[in-house]
């Protein structure tokens, strides 16, 4: 969705009649942010600036709202989003090693994205399959039991693919 095309009345839906213009634009903010992120992969600064003018919500407030939620990103994301689980079960089975190895291999820190946008490296609390520990996810696919060099190399190949 292009910022210019936002139709506040339409987006707010049925309740639009009882809301003031101010409430309408405030109420629509998160929906619009989600849409922008879906379309562009992240929330680019210039788009947020336009959004601020369009909705008459201060830019600082938009950043404040967006930064409250982990799901919003302000930097471009890699093609592959890799999340290494640092939950208890994974941790004791050496997931920290997996993380360090990935950091070294790609030359980035957890939370960053490689310059060529191949991947974004993140950590996660628990993926919910502790039996497979240590676990990482590539986009939505789970890679389990990453123990030993072979498995690690496979993981890297999968990311580079």
């Amino acid at each position: 969705m292009k910022v210019e095309e936002i139709d506040v009345d339409n987006e707010v839906g049925e309740v639009s009649e009882i809301l003031s213009q101010n409430e309408k634009t405030k109420g629509i903010l998160i929906h619009v942010l989600q849409q922008i992120q879906e379309d562009m992969g992240y929330l680019p600064d210039e788009v947020l600036r336009k959004l601020s003018k369009k909705l008459n919500i201060p830019l600082s407030e938009i950043y404040s709202v967006a930064s409250f939620y982990k799901m919003f990103h302000f930097k471009p994301r890699g093609k592959k989003v890799v999340r290494v689980c640092l939950g208890t079960a994974c941790y004791v089975r050496g997931s920290k090693k997996v993380l360090n190895m990935l950091e070294n291999e790609f030359g980035i820190k957890s939370g960053d994205t490689t310059e060529d946008l191949t991947m974004t490296l993140e950590t996660v609390g628990c993926v919910g399959c502790c039996g497979l520990a240590p676990v990482a996810t590539i986009n939505d696919n789970v890679v389990g039991e990453i123990i030993g060099n072979k498995k690690l190399e496979k993981l890297i190949d999968d990311i580079r693919e």
């Binding site: 947020l48 407030e61 409250f68």
Partner: peptide, 25 residues
């Protein structure tokens, strides 16, 4: 409308939009 909170919990911080220096806000 220059300053606002960014982040949440222990990591919240009072910053300008996108945590830029004041003169860029």
């Amino acid at each position: 409308n220059v300053l606002d909170f960014m982040g949440r919990g222990i990591e919240s911080k009072v910053v300008t939009a996108n945590d830029r220096p004041l003169q860029e806000s």
